[in-house]
């Protein structure tokens, strides 16, 4: 008993630490990346390459007074940032980093991650509503309509992968791709996908991940330079900090899912140095792409954003689903 209890506690602590550490240092990576793309130095004073910036920012945020404006709905106002961080940490429980490093290998792993990801929308709604600020509220309605719109093509694309793998267990999905680099789900010819449209589903999934995590060019919920700050206008200190960390933790989860579903998880390309670092390498390459896209593309409009999902991505992903089902039936 004590061993199982200890295992649970260790798994939870590691999940929280991994999420928090990644969130903190992704902010640093984002700022350095932005600075590099915009030809300015970025944070470079504290520590080598400015590496001490995230802990100092954290201390600053935690030391600030928690201001709760008058007239807000206090319980929901405090619950919203917690609700933003909680699903991200829960999702880390079932993500397999390698064939041995996984906290709880669930048979419904894919479902669990999307179930908890869908709770994120509630935190946006509660944050906007409880602030009693009409701009925060309007922005949260925008953000949630965006999240709902992009959840659909994302789930449909995931179903194609689940159909090919015949399982919702994340470890099993990776193991089916681990024979060689050509067996990864993104490559259509070898492996068990046999589906010429797989690179295409990867693209749909990636676009949806960008939109689900509120990243540019789809960051209309926040739109830094146009709206004040979106749904978290009224939040200061660590309330704001939690929203910020939740956003980056969600990016990590999204990239983990892309790696597992399409890029073969921890499996190594040519049998070179098998191990957990291949997973981490793919993960951070994807995250670097996120940062790169954010600072290279201009923001879309809200109409363009919603049209892209409802009129293009959903029909395409439905077609993709039917095509995959037909291929599975034929072969």
């Amino acid at each position: 008993m004590s061993l199982t209890l200890l295992n649970v506690i260790i798994a939870v602590v590691i999940a929280i630490a991994f999420a928090a550490l990644n969130a903190a240092y992704l902010v640093w990576a984002e700022r350095r990346g932005a600075a590099r793309i915009q030809r300015r130095p970025g944070p470079n004073i504290n520590g080598p390459f400015g590496l001490l910036q995230p802990p100092l920012d954290g201390i600053k945020l935690m030391a600030k007074q928690l201001i709760i404006p008058g007239g807000v709905d206090k319980i929901l106002f405090i619950a919203a940032p917690v609700l933003a961080m909680f699903p991200a940490i829960m999702s880390f429980v079932t993500i397999p980093f390698s064939d041995t490093i996984v906290a709880q290998n669930m048979d419904v792993g894919v479902l669990m991650i999307f179930a908890f990801a869908s709770m994120g929308g509630m935190s946006l709604l509660f944050a906007g509503w409880s602030s009693r600020n009409k701009y925060a509220m309007m922005s949260s309605i925008r953000a949630v309509s965006q999240a709902v719109a992009y959840e659909i093509p994302m789930l449909i694309t995931t179903i194609t992968v689940v159909m090919i793998a015949g399982s919702m267990n994340l470890t099993e999905i990776v193991q089916q791709q681990s024979a060689s680099i050509l067996h990864w789900n993104i490559f259509p010819l070898l492996g068990n996908s046999h589906n010429l449209l797989m690179p295409f589903s990867f693209l749909i999934f990636f676009i949806c991940t960008l939109a689900e995590t509120n990243r540019a060019p789809f960051d209309l919920g926040e739109a830094e330079s146009e709206l004040v700050a979106g749904f978290h206008t009224e939040y200061g200190s660590m309330g704001f900090g939690l929203f910020f960390m939740g956003e980056y933790a969600n990016i990590v989860i999204g990239s983990c899912m892309t790696t597992i579903l399409f890029l073969g998880g921890w499996s190594c390309p040519f049998g070179l140095f098998p191990g957990v670092w291949w997973f981490l390498l793919k993960l951070y390459l994807l995250i670097a792409t996120f940062i790169w896209i954010r600072w290279t593309f201009p923001r879309t409009t809200i109409y363009g954003l919603l049209n892209l999902s409802w009129k293009i991505l959903i029909p395409l992903s439905l077609f993709n689903l039917l095509f995959t089902a037909g291929l599975i039936k034929v072969f």
Partner: peptide, 12 residues
């Protein structure tokens, strides 16, 4: 499914 449908869709 309870969380995905009820919390994620119905409650929203």
């Amino acid at each position: 499914m309870q969380i995905l449908i009820y919390v994620g869709a119905v409650a929203v």
